[in-house]
């Protein structure tokens, strides 16, 4: 028996919005410690990994490990039927070929139930080694989204260059070129606007903007995004999954990490 309840169903909607264009089908691995998902995009250039901690749920029960393979586009459609303030429960019985989604409205007298068919998917899990990265940039998620969108007007790829003075995002295309430079800054009043750069050695790497723009669909989950880079390894773009409660308290319940293979010169 698996049962997981989130008090703010909108979090699950945001997670699905963040991944369902990159991957259409994937398996959730459910264990006593939480739910996780790992999947490559169809062209095998990027990888998305979602982790939800069991203790981030208001109720979490997983009697034995389960793999719930499903069509994420369909899951997204069903989650659209939940109100943003609904409590959402996911239930799966051992050996069943479907899961149940239960939406409880805040008024406490309206309950909706949906079932979604499970699928047997060929799992291709990649092992991601512990890596210490040369460069880590923590910046406002909305700023990163804006930079990726703007530079995609200029070209298909962005070169991220880190030096002592800051981080440069630049693109070149038929019409010309463009760049955005950020230097470290911190504000006590608005920590969500901070740019934090930690660098061991200068570095420059190029990535396809098509994928980065897909990753930024996770922007509504968290005010800050973390980029981790090292030479000759994929870029990691991480968003914390933050649940905002009624009292405006913020609770970190997991994360989404996107991994993107670099473009390399001949």
């Amino acid at each position: 028996m698996f049962e997981a309840k989130l008090d703010r169903g909108i979090v699950l909607k945001k997670i699905l919005d963040a991944i369902n264009q990159l991957v259409n089908e994937a398996s959730w691995e459910c264990t006593s410690s939480g739910m996780s998902l790992q999947a490559m995009d169809t062209s095998h250039v990027s990888l998305v990994a979602v982790n939800l901690n069991g203790d981030g749920f208001s109720k979490f029960r997983c009697d034995r490990n389960m793999v719930l393979g499903m069509n994420l586009v369909n899951l997204s459609k069903i989650l659209k039927c939940a109100g943003n303030d609904d409590k959402v429960t996911i239930k799966a019985a051992d050996g069943d070929d479907k899961i149940k989604l239960i939406f409880e409205a805040p008024n406490e007298y309206e309950v909706s139930q949906y079932e979604i068919k499970l699928m047997n998917l060929d799992a291709e899990y990649l092992g991601i080694p512990e890596t210490s990265y040369n460069v880590t940039v923590k910046m406002p998620a909305a700023k990163f989204q804006r930079i990726c969108r703007d530079l995609n007007q200029i070209g298909d790829a962005v070169t991220i260059s880190c030096t002592k003075s800051g981080v440069d995002f630049s693109a070149t295309g038929d019409l010309g070129n463009g760049s955005v430079s950020l230097s470290q800054n911190s504000s006590f009043d608005k920590p969500e606007d901070n740019v934090t750069i930690s660098m061991q050695e200068p570095l420059s790497q190029t990535f396809a903007l098509k994928y980065l723009n897909q990753f930024t669909k996770a922007t509504p989950l968290c005010s800050q995004v973390t980029l981790s880079l090292s030479p000759d390894v994929p870029l990691v773009v991480e968003y914390k999954i933050i649940e905002e409660n009624e009292e405006d308290s913020k609770n970190e319940i997991g994360h989404i990490r996107y991994y993107l293979a670099p473009k390399i010169d001949d």
Binding site: M40, H44, Y125, G127, A157, P234, Y259, A261, I264, D266
Partner: peptide, 14 residues
Amino acid sequence: SANQTKIEHYYGLR
């Protein structure tokens, strides 16, 4: 122009 690499090139199957 630069060539796009694949993610499996960096991370092996688990």
